[in-house]
Design a protein around this nucleic acid. Structure first.
Length: 470
RNA sequence: GGCGGGUUGGCGGAGAGGUUACGUACCGGAUUGCAAAUCCGUGUAGACCGGUUCGAUUCCGGUACCCGCCUCCA
C-alpha cells in the first residue's frame, strides 16, 4: 500500500508519489523565534515529524529532505530587543536581536527534542537568505507582479488569477469582508508587503528599494526555492497559515515561474479544555510549562497522536493522565519481557506503516501498539514505540535498566513483606503487616498479593530510598 | 458577511453499508484476612429530520448546536 495524503490544494486524499524518490522534499513553516513555543506550536512539529519518519522509512533516511525554517526577522523580536535596550542594555540593537533569537532557538530545540521530534535536515534562518528574497522580489517587479511605493514593495494580487484557490476564497469576497488594512500606498486592498523600509531603530538590509526588511511571506518562498528547488513534494503547516501566508507563498512563487509544492498538508488547531488557547482565558501554556509540571514529552506526543491531524484537538489534563497510564503499561511489558537488542533488529509493524500511510492515521497506529501490548509482544511494541518517536532507544534502555535494577531490590522487599505476612496470618493480627504495606505503597510501589506470593510493581515515580532500611 | 471543521456509549476516540473497535470509567466474577493490583466477563453509542437501500451510525439532502479562519497567532 502506498502513501495517501489529504492534499489541501485539491481537498482530496491522493496517492503520494514523489517527484524524485531519491530526494523526497518537504517544507514546513517553522516558528517565529520571539518566545517559548506554546503547546499549540507543538502540534505541527509532531505531525510533520511523524510524516518525516514515515517518508524516511519508505524512501530511505538518506532520500528525504525536510526543511523547517526559523523566522528570525519579525516585529515581535524587534519589540523584545527594543524593550531590553530601553531597560538600559547598552549593546547595539542587532546584538540584542541576535541574542534573543539565539536563546529562543535553543529553547525551541530543547522543547521539541523532548517531544521526540527529529531535527529537520535543514533549519534555515530567514536572515541568512535576504539576498535570495531580494532577488525574488526584483523578479516579481520585473514580471509586473509587484510594485514599489514609498519604500515598500507590494505584491499585486490582481496579477495572479489563481489567488485564493488554496484557501477557497475569492478576492472580491475578502474585500467585501473589509477587514483588510488599507494602506495608502496600496493599489488594491488585498496587496501584501514583500519588502518594507526600516528606520535606524530597526534591523535592515540594503536593497534596490532602500534599507529595509522582508515581509513574512516572501521568506518561505525564497528559502523553499533555495533549498528544495522550484518544485517540491510537500508543504506543511498549521491551518491558520493557509490564509494568508500559504496563499501568498503560492502567489509569489508561481509568479516567479516556480511549480512550488505539489501537496499541501494542514494540521487543524489545538484547543485547551474545549476553548481556544489564549492568555486572557488563562489556559495559555508553553511546552516548557508542561514539562516542568512533570508531564513528560512522550505523554504529550501520545496525546497528540491520539487525534488525527486534520481534526481539531483538545488538550486536557485528563488525556495526559490517560496517556501516561497507557505508556506505563507498555513500559512494564517491555521491562518484564523485552530484549531491546532483539527489538532493534525488527522492522516496524506493517499495520503501523499502513496506518500512517493512510493520511497519517496515527490513532490507528496507536491501536496497533495496544494490540501488541495485549499480545505480550514486548519487542515489537518497543520497536514501534521507537518508530513513532514516542521513546528513543536510549530512553528505553535507561528505563528497562532501571526497571530491572530495581527488580532485584523489589524481590528482597517482597520477601520481607511475605515473612511479615506469614507471622500476621499465624497470629491473626495484620496491624504490622498493613503498616509495612502502607509504607511500600507510599513509595509508589503497588503491592499485589496472589496465591503465588507477593509481587511488587513499581510505578513510574517509585522511590526506593524510602525503603532503604528493609 | 465569506470560507472551513466538528457533533459516536459516563469520558476520550476510530474504522467499516450488514459481523467485538480500542482505551478509560462503571458493574459482575475469580483472587484476598480486608483491600489494591491482576485476570475473566457483561452492559452502555453515533445531534435532529427526511431520502436512497433488503438493511445506515456509515451514502445523499436539510435543520440545530459547537469550534476555527478571514487580524505577520502553528
Amino acid at each position: 500500500m502506498g502513501i495517501r495524503l489529504h492534499n489541501s490544494a485539491t481537498r482530496a486524499k491522493e496517492d503520494f508519489a514523489p517527484i524524485d524518490p531519491l530526494n523526497v522534499r518537504m517544507y514546513v513553516c517553522g516558528p517565529t523565534v520571539y518566545d517559548r513555543a506554546h503547546i499549540g506550536n507543538a502540534r505541527p512539529v509532531v505531525v510533520f515529524d511523524t510524516l518525516y519518519r514515515l517518508l524516511r522509512h519508505v524512501y530511505g533516511p538518506d532520500h528525504v529532505t525536510y526543511v523547517r525554517n526559523f523566522t528570525d526577522v519579525d516585529d515581535k523580536i524587534n519589540a523584545t530587543a527594543q524593550a531590553r535596550k530601553a531597560a538600559g542594555d547598552a549593546r547595539p540593537l542587532e546584538a540584542l536581536i541576535r541574542e534573543r533569537t539565539e536563546e529562543t532557538i535553543g529553547w525551541y530545540h530543547a522543547d521539541m527534542d523532548a517531544l521526540g521530534a527529529l531535527r529537520p535536515d535543514v533549519e534555515p534562518r530567514a536572515t541568512d537568505y535576504i539576498g535570495q528574497m531580494v532577488a525574488m522580489i526584483a523578479g516579481l517587479i520585473a514580471g509586473g507582479h509587484a510594485y514599489e511605493k514609498e519604500g515598500h514593495v507590494l505584491f499585486r494580487v490582481r496579477s495572479y488569477a489563481e489567488y485564493g484557490r488554496l484557501s477557497g476564497r475569492s478576492v472580491d469576497d475578502m474585500i467585501a469582508g473589509a477587514r483588510v488594512e488599507v494602506a495608502p500606498f496600496k493599489e488594491d486592498p488585498m496587496d501584501f508587503v514583500l519588502w518594507k523600509p526600516s528606520d535606524a531603530d530597526l534591523p535592515g538590509w540594503v536593497s534596490p528599494w532602500g534599507r529595509g526588511r522582508p515581509g513574512w511571506h516572501i521568506e518561505c518562498s525564497a528559502m523553499a526555492h533555495e533549498l528544495l528547488g522550484a518544485e517540491f513534494d510537500i508543504h506543511g503547516g498549521g491551518l491558520d497559515l493557509q490564509f494568508p501566508h500559504h496563499e501568498n507563498e503560492i502567489a509569489q512563487s508561481a509568479c516567479c515561474g516556480h511549480g512550488f509544492a505539489r501537496f499541501w498538508l494542514h494540521n487543524e488547531m489545538l484547543q485547551v479544555e474545549g476553548k481556544k488557547m489564549s492568555k486572557s482565558l488563562g489556559n495559555f501554556f508553553t511546552v516548557r510549562d508542561l514539562l516542568d509540571q512533570g508531564v513528560p514529552g512522550e505523554v504529550i506526543r501520545m496525546v497528540f497522536l491520539g487525534t488525527h491531524y486534520g481534526k481539531p484537538m483538545d488538550w486536557t489534563a485528563e488525556k495526559a493522565v490517560e496517556a501516561e497510564m497507557r505508556l506505563h503499561g507498555f513500559l512494564e511489558l517491555i521491562g518484564l519481557y523485552g530484549d531491546l537488542q532483539q527489538a532493534k533488529t525488527l522492522a516496524p509493524e506493517p499495520a503501523v506503516i499502513d496506518a500512517l500511510s493512510d493520511d497519517l492515521n496515527t490513532h490507528a497506529a496507536l491501536m496497533v501498539l495496544q494490540k501488541l501490548n495485549g499480545a505480550d509482544q514486548a519487542n515489537a511494541l518497543a520497536r514501534n514505540l521507537e518508530f513513532l518517536g514516542i521513546y528513543s532507544w536510549e530512553t528505553l534502555e535507561t528505563k528497562v535498566a532501571n526497571f530491572r535494577g530495581s527488580q532485584i531490590r523489589l524481590q528482597e522487599i517482597a520477601a520481607v513483606l511475605l515473612q511479615v505476612r506469614e507471622v500476621a496470618k499465624a497470629q491473626k493480627n495484620f496491624t504490622a503487616f498493613d503498616a509495612l504495606k502502607q509504607r511500600i505503597t507510599t513509595a509508589n510501589i503497588a503491592v499485589m498479593i496472589g496465591k503465588d506470593g507477593i509481587t511488587l510493581r513499581p510505578e513510574i515515580d517509585m522511590d526506593l530510598t524510602k525503603l532503604a532500611d528493609l
